[in-house]
Design a binder for these strands. Structure first.
Lengths: 198, 198
DNA sequence: ACAATATTGACCGACGGTCGGTCAAAAAAG
DNA sequence: CTTTTTTGACCGACCGTCGGTCAATATTGT
């Protein structure tokens, strides 16, 4: 038998090599030929590892999201912050300067997902959602323990995610100032809904 | 001087003629040649009235949204409904059976917008936002007048929009049951935030 | 008749994706 | 240890499609 490569690893390597290309050009102006050139393989080879262009992009995006969720986990573990501060950090992180490019990537990902994503994309997004909700859950649970929040605050978790997603969409269109909207939102939550009554 | 056609009107006519085509094929599988054929003009003529394919799609989508907003306006004008009922109707309408296809189109529109929209997209989306917020404003104003809502309810208008947009995204990925989520959301708003205290 | 404008579809270049063929490494045979 | 065979990774010329262009033609008002 001839050589057998680790397909999964090679996918990762190809994706890694053209991370910058995606950030620079965006999905629309990113061609498979370019990817092949930068990855140092023939165009045909690309299609040995990916079913189509979207899958390539998707693999690159996975790299970013994994990194992002690691960063989030660190914040949640930080015990010097109130749950309100954590929530604000959680919601703002993707809009921060150092995640500027990743935000664009995430928007591009949403773009693919919205235009009839493959089953792989859906699965991935499920994991994403579970990851984010998990972080949120921990934040809010801590808030409840600290008496910053009422018990029913947990019910808000999906709503917070929807709000956040919607905000990402509007920011993509230059129609929203993220920090301002998030502050207003968190104020509503903490002042009107779930602030522990004393 | 020769004839001068009403460009705006012709745009509308071309868009109208291929409404069905868009609903049937979706944006990705809709070709300019098809549009030209159905509209009964040459492909070159299309480009006399539209700068690019996206613009054609937006024009068609505009038709849908206009229709949609008309439907919404009717509900707002109906004085037999409480503002809570109106809000629920407002948020659910796009997910209803008879707007099934339009929802898909709107999701595809968001997809295009997210992957680096032109200035035309942004302008269009601005109008959309203003339209929706206008309807929301009326609903909530009525609620305040009827003492169903507190004064500060108006502050929630952008938040409601973000939530709604986020929900549309998640529904596209089969990750949310619209009615259920909306009910929960409206409950939160009316029970916890802005219900008039008696 | 003439000028101005509207219309057209053949044409173009770019792109995503395919396919027959090449080649080096590994396995089998001698 | 050498030769032969098999395997599958790799390639890039090629294909069909599509968005967009443009020179030629048709239509209209004066």
């Amino acid at each position: 038998m001839a050589i057998v490569v680790d397909k999964k690893e090679k996918r990762r390597l190809i994706a890694l090599s053209c991370k910058g290309l995606l950030l620079e050009h965006g999905i629309k102006n990113l061609t498979v030929s370019q990817i092949a050139k930068v990855a140092g393989v023939g165009k045909g080879t690309i299609y040995e590892y990916f079913a189509n262009k979207d899958e390539i992009v998707f693999e690159i995006i996975t790299l970013f999201i994994d990194q992002f969720q690691e960063d989030l986990a660190k914040v949640v573990a930080n015990d010097t912050l109130t749950s309100r501060e954590k929530l604000e950090y959680f919601m703002l992180l993707v809009f921060s300067r150092n995640y500027n490019k990743e935000l664009i990537i995430y928007q591009e990902f949403l773009s693919i997902a919205l235009s009839g994503g493959s089953s792989g994309i859906v699965e991935f997004r499920n994991n994403c959602r579970d990851g984010f909700e998990g972080v949120l859950y921990k934040i809010i649970e801590q808030g409840i323990k600290n008496k910053e929040l009422q018990q029913n605050a947990k019910l808000l978790i999906p709503m917070i995610r929807y709000f956040h997603t919607g905000l990402i969409v509007d920011v993509a269109l230059g129609q929203a100032e993220a920090k301002e909207e998030i502050d207003k939102f968190i104020n509503s939550i903490f002042n009107d809904i779930v602030l522990q009554e004393e």
